[in-house]
Computed example of a mutant assay.
Amino acid sequence: MPRRSFFEPGAEDPLSYALAERDRSTLRMVREALEAGDVMLAYQPVIGALTGDPAFHEGLIRVLDGSGRIIPATQFMPAVENEELGREIDCAALRCGLEALAGTPSLRLSVNMSARSIGYPKWTRTLQDWLARDETVGERLILEITESSAMQVPELVKTFMTDLQDRGITFALDDFGAGQTSFRYLKEFYFDVIKIDGSFVRGCDADPDNQCILAALITIGQHFDMFTVAESVETQAEAQFLVDAGIDCLQGFHYGAPAMRPDWLVSAERRAEEHVKV
């Protein structure tokens, strides 16, 4: 009997099999890390255009493998976007963010979530438990929802936002301009912050098309009384153009890469240790 070729119809070729097995292995590592609590946030400053100081920080979830190394999010986030594991990642990000807010009273922090987690019992319970302990964490918490996620269930997002904004929580529309936002919904959403997608920011100091789009997006934010943030700012020239264009805040490697132990966190931990000793 002739040996079957890997490339016959219906059979996986060796490369596809290897890639699929790698993906399965990565998801197993992510699941095990979440069960063990091997997650933490990396913090990136969001800088006020007029002050030059951090207006808030964004907390980006980092999942660690058994050796303590970061599992690149690009290797698992697309695969878990609409899965239970994705909701668990949102829960872990929220928990880490709330712990950071409780431990650092001067901190204002944004945490990413997806519309998939609205109504997810564990996510809701995590938030309600922390608000019951200390309502000030809600006043300093910003929840970022991507434009593409919000547009999947706009009516649900609107109700969710209204309920939590009454508790003092701020909402940011992430990756603004990259998706398919209906301006009818934008008018009704009442986001507090819009974060303009980095694809329009990169090279904006020299790209007339990006300059035109940025001017329009900033104007929309101002008209609807929303705080505007430019993402992915990488050069001083880009930053200066954005400041001149009227942006409120800037975020990107030009101001600092995400750091898991920024100076303010180290200082907060040191103060907590000294308080325990006293």
Rank of each mutant, 00 (worst) to 15 (best):
D53E: 15
D53A: 14
Y120K: 04
P105I: 11
E84C: 09
S5D: 10
D65F: 03
R140D: 06
G48M: 05
L41F: 07
L27F: 09
M113W: 01
F7D: 15
G138H: 01
I70W: 02
L107D: 05
L98W: 05
M29A: 15
R24W: 08
V39I: 09
P121H: 04
A36T: 12
R87K: 15
Y120D: 10
M113C: 14
Y17L: 14
E35H: 10
G37S: 11
G138P: 08
M77H: 07
T74G: 15
A20N: 13
R140M: 04
L27S: 09
I61R: 02
G10F: 03
L98Y: 01
T104N: 13
A33W: 04
R116L: 13
E139L: 06
E81P: 07
P121V: 08
D90K: 01
F6I: 00
V46A: 03
F7L: 15
L85W: 02
E35N: 12
A73E: 07
A42R: 02
M113P: 01
E99G: 06
G86I: 07
R108I: 12
V39E: 03
E8P: 05
A18C: 12
I47M: 13
L27D: 09
G48L: 12
T51V: 02
R95A: 12
L101H: 03
V46I: 15
T74L: 13
C91I: 09
T74H: 03
T126I: 13
T126G: 02
E83C: 09
P78M: 11
C96S: 13
D23E: 14
R31M: 06
Y17N: 11
A93P: 00
R62C: 06
G37C: 08
R140A: 04
G86T: 09
E35G: 11
E58Y: 05
E135D: 14
S117Q: 00
S5G: 07
R133E: 14
P54G: 06
P78H: 02
G52K: 03
A79F: 06
R108S: 07
L109N: 01
I47A: 06
T126P: 05
R31K: 10
P72T: 11
E139A: 10
G66E: 15
P105E: 08
A115M: 03
A92V: 02
L131S: 06
L15G: 09
L27K: 11
L19R: 12
R108V: 14
S114P: 03
P72A: 08
P78G: 06
G138A: 10
F56W: 09
D134M: 00
E135N: 10
P78N: 09
E88T: 08
A18R: 11
A20G: 14
A132F: 01
Y17E: 15
D65T: 10
V111S: 02
A36I: 05
F7N: 13
G66P: 07
G48K: 01
A20I: 06
T136C: 02
P78A: 07
A33P: 00
R28V: 10
